[in-house]
Write a protein that binds this DNA or RNA. Structure first.
Lengths: 337, 337
DNA sequence: CCCAAAACTGGAAGCGCTTCCAGTCCGTTT
DNA sequence: AAACGGACTGGAAGCGCTTCCAGTTTTGGG
């Protein structure tokens, strides 16, 4: 039945005619704008129902000069970035906010040369009314591109270089400092860190917080290894760390994935956690609850990040000038420290 | 500077004027259609460059009656479905294919009542040129909705009820059978299974494959517990299973997440894997490589699913009638069996 | 050198909806 | 009863691009 020659869908003109009013009036009734008498409004509504009329979003977009969509742009060198549940959470948060509007979410992975070009196009053609950008690396050209495009843009996490006016972030420095201070409070003195990529703001900020805590406590021990925020990368980094600093008694991993990897490596190496080595993570992802042992971690409200980015974008699109937002982190004590 | 009164962007008319040709010719040159002399074509291209002209996608969409986008609709009762890296892979696969076209990807989470309504709207208003649907539960109304909408639609995995003409799936029955046969070949005789949700086709199909293998081998032992495809759910199910069937000597988990959960529970319960209990999963996600011990699993080409769904959708949109596709699975032997 | 076929051209008609603006109607105010 | 502000109306002008079609110019064969 669906194969029937797809009878052309009714237009607003037909609705107007059937209701015996002008197209203008029909449009007003449709959008329940003022200046339509009660009678006509009802007549139009009835006609709409009878005809099964559905407004054409493209035509509306052309007339109103609004795309009716916002984009979430995820950068990174590998399409596998999405394997990180982190983004899933952000997307979920964004979705819940967008559900309340009539904006669609277009997802762009700027993970290949081709992808970057597509994003550029998206920005230039103004195919969306606003964009959210995430996980930009050091001098990601997307940053300036987005800023220059004149499209409302909010960033998830500050880009490493360049100031951006609108962003949502968590206090990475403070969170990391709390993490390391927690380890210190447990009596650890040879505290190593598995950092994130150091060409990202989040990677550096967490490292900085860690170092601040060490300095403040007057601890001279320094040991670190860079990871890539994946569990696998965390394993490799932990192995390297263990080889170079076999005497470490605690590890601050810059995220839970890497912490989970570290736990495995420590387990295989025969180090008891937390007896021999205490481990703390960052994120508060589901994985942190089910590691062996359950992971103490610095929890960040990821879903909220998506939600707040979206709210900020909506505000921006509405002509407001929202302030950057720094979300708080909280230490969640479990069994690995 | 971006605050400057946003000088109106040039239109095709202005390009045409500057190039000294008609708008028609300009359009043709732009889309490099035939019937434009070399001279004019070049003049237009030059004007485009000089003016920094960028075509307005909305106007084009209105004129061509094509939205220029396809949707990926993910159903499920919880926005957290996206936490499963599975979808990340599918999205990545879809993206790589779409990158080669000029279609955008709009992502819809039909995970709430509001979300369902939005999807319905999306379908009715024809805001996209095609849709891909995933993870539909038993009698998900989305199935018939999508079919009735008259929009090209391809399904990821067969819906439980109702035949759909276009879908991409893996041979879940066969894959599951291989898994259990593998366990049997390792000499196991008391083989339990952690099933997926039994109101999904994938959940039932894998269970069926498991049972087929048992029947074929003449093994009378039956033990199963339903999970929800999450690691956490796998843990709960494994605990229940262990309590009711303490004598089991092998477990087929319907996906890797649950298998990972099962491994943890078995570890805590003091059962050695694979010595006491052999475990096999399904999916071949990254997690299967880093569990302790590394997990033997039935690998399915997830990225390809996204890719092939997209290709199928493109074919459908091009007026072809592609055949459903069943992707093969392969057994990946690691250390848990 | 003539004529039909092939290759261009560009005016004009949309695609479906929003919104400005010049009016029309009415109930009040004085 | 004349004047007035406010609530409706709907014709018409777009929004920016594609494409049909009738007409014009080139080509190429005979």
């Amino acid at each position: 039945m669906t194969e029937q020659p797809t009878r052309r869908r009714p237009t607003l003109d037909e609705v107007a005619e059937r209701a015996g009013v002008s197209r203008t009036a029909a449009s007003r009734a449709l959008n329940n704008a003022p200046n339509v008498s009660r009678d006509k409004r009802e007549a139009v509504l009835r006609a709409i129902k009878e005809l099964g009329y559905v407004p054409n979003p493209t035509a509306r977009a052309l007339a109103t000069q609004q795309a009716g969509a916002v984009a979430l742009i995820i950068s990174g060198e590998d399409p596998a970035v999405l394997a990180d549940p982190f983004y899933g959470q952000v997307i979920a948060g964004a979705s819940t906010v967008l559900e309340e509007t009539d904006l669609h979410l277009v997802l762009c992975l700027a993970t290949s040369a081709r992808g970057q070009i597509r994003v550029k196009q998206l920005l230039r053609t103004r195919a969306v009314d606003g964009v959210m950008l995430m996980s930009l690396r050091g001098d990601d050209p997307l940053t300036s591109l987005a800023l220059a495009a004149g499209v409302p843009a909010v960033f998830g996490g500050k880009p490493l270089h360049g100031q951006v006016p609108y962003y949502v972030d968590v206090d990475n420095v403070l969170g990391a400092r709390q993490a390391t201070e927690h380890l210190i409070s447990r009596g650890r003195t040879r505290i190593a860190t598995l950092t994130g990529p150091l060409d990202t703001d989040v990677g550096r900020a967490r490292r900085r917080g860690h170092l601040e805590a060490l300095t403040l406590a007057g601890l001279p021990y320094r040991a670190e290894e860079a990871g890539d925020f994946t569990e696998r990368g965390g394993m490799a980094a932990m192995e390297a760390l263990l080889a170079r600093h076999p005497d470490l008694d605690a590890v601050f991993a810059a995220n839970d994935n890497m912490a989970a990897g570290a736990l495995r490596v420590l387990g295989r190496a025969g180090r008891a956690v937390p007896a021999d080595v205490a481990v703390i993570g960052f994120d508060g992802l589901a994985v942190s609850e089910i590691t062996e042992p359950p992971l103490t971690t610095v929890h960040q409200p990821i879903r909220n990040i998506g939600r707040e980015m979206t709210r900020m974008l909506l505000a921006l699109m509405a002509g407001e000038r929202p302030s950057p937002l720094i979300l708080p982190t909280t230490l969640v004590q479990r069994d690995s420290t």
